[in-house]
């Protein structure tokens, strides 16, 4: 380790973690390089793409702009923390089923951002979902399936027994328009 290395400690996905890292490294670097959690991705390292989003104390932040030193004793959640022994998080299930992850590179950042949204607002409208995720770029999906997946997960988290969309709904057809089938 470099001479400028420091030791820090935070609660990572529910577990206390103490690591040594270079003092100038951001949370992104420390998560990926020192904590062995490469699930958090990066696309610019300048705050411009949202790919590196993680939750600090439940709030979405860009890990490329936060020094790891600022995270002392904070609770940090990454995509790796969504799954538990009980299974996948409903957001993960919805993303998997609706094809909301294509290449999957933007997915970790979007999942945690969506989780924070649903914690604050259990019934967001589509427009609110879009707004909440508007700092996260995705080049593959055109976003619509992501919005629908968050909506589906929200419904299921509210306890609604919502099935997967029909083909017609998947295609974004206004209600009752089945002309494509």
């Amino acid at each position: 380790m470099n001479a400028d290395s420091v030791t820090g400690s935070f609660v990572l996905n529910g577990e206390r973690k103490t690591v040594a890292y270079p003092e100038h490294h951001t949370l992104l670097e420390v998560l990926r390089e020192e904590c062995g959690l490469p699930g958090t991705k990066h696309g610019c390292e300048l705050g411009e793409c949202g790919t590196c989003t993680v939750l600090i104390e439940g709030v979405p932040v860009l890990s490329c702009l936060v020094l790891a030193r600022q995270c002392e004793d904070q609770a940090i959640e990454t995509v790796e923390g969504l799954e538990s022994a009980e299974g996948l998080h409903p957001l993960q299930v919805a993303f998997a089923d609706l094809g909301a992850a294509q290449c999957g590179y933007c997915t970790p950042g979007i999942l945690v951002t969506a989780k924070a949204l649903l914690a604050a607002n259990a019934s967001p409208t589509s427009a609110e979902i879009d707004e909440a995720l508007s700092g996260n770029l995705c080049r593959c999906t055109g976003y619509r399936k992501i919005t629908e997946a968050v909506d589906l997960a929200a419904a299921r988290l509210r306890g609604e027994d919502r099935a997967l969309p029909s083909l017609s709904e998947l295609c974004g057809h206004p209600h009752g328009d089945h002309s494509h089938e």
Binding site: D4, E23, H24, E29, H42, C44, E45, L67, Q70
Partner: peptide, 12 residues
Amino acid sequence: MMRLPSLQWAAP
């Protein structure tokens, strides 16, 4: 990856 130059950090 773009990284910061070496520097020190303190939180008064």
